[in-house]
């Protein structure tokens, strides 16, 4: 398990709040390239946060960022970063993961690789640059912890 030197907690009370956090968390994640694992159960707001980050970085509008659960990889190109949004929910084995070519993505100097359900794969956990853990609070509340460094 990779250890981090820095961490920061966030709490939001709505989808709009999670989208707005894209700015603060986006700033933490820069500069590229970075490999980031987003963890949290179904409905925790992982894709919503990616929408916020992509909009903040000018790579896509919030509406353009959709769930990659089936399609596995979505790519959004902004002026300074190239966001790869991955979802490994349907993947079971490292062998399947290998065919997605995450190495090639990370090798690009402007890549911000955001991986949902990435914590299940040791090959990613051992080399990630940051981790965002998200959980349900009361009602629409969501708690997030970003760890990096």
């Amino acid at each position: 398990m990779k250890s981090f030197t820095r961490e920061k907690r966030f709490r939001t009370r709505s989808v709009a709040g999670t989208l707005a956090l894209g700015e603060k968390i986006g700033e933490i994640l820069l500069p590229a390239p970075k490999l980031v694992v987003l963890r949290g159960e179904v409905g925790a707001g992982k894709t919503t946060l990616v929408k916020g980050i992509a909009a903040f970085l000018g790579a896509a509008t919030e509406e353009d960022v959709t769930s990659p659960t089936f399609t596995l990889v979505h790519e959004y190109v902004g002026p300074k970063v190239r966001i790869y949004h991955l979802d490994l929910y349907r993947l079971e084995t490292e062998r399947e993961l290998a065919t997605l070519g995450i190495e090639e993505m990370i090798a690009e100097p402007d890549a911000l690789v955001l991986v949902e359900w990435g914590e299940r794969f040791e090959s990613l956990v051992s080399r990630m640059d940051a981790e965002i853990a998200m959980e349900h609070g009361e009602g629409d509340e969501r708690n997030m912890m970003v760890r990096w460094g």
């Binding site: 179904v42 894709t47 959709t66 769930s67 659960t69």
Partner: peptide, 18 residues
């Protein structure tokens, strides 16, 4: 028109799993 987040079939799969 299009989905702004999950596809309908994805909602089916995730709810079935839940």
């Amino acid at each position: 028109g299009r989905t702004v987040d999950d596809a309908a079939g994805e909602a089916y799969d995730k709810v079935a799993k839940l």
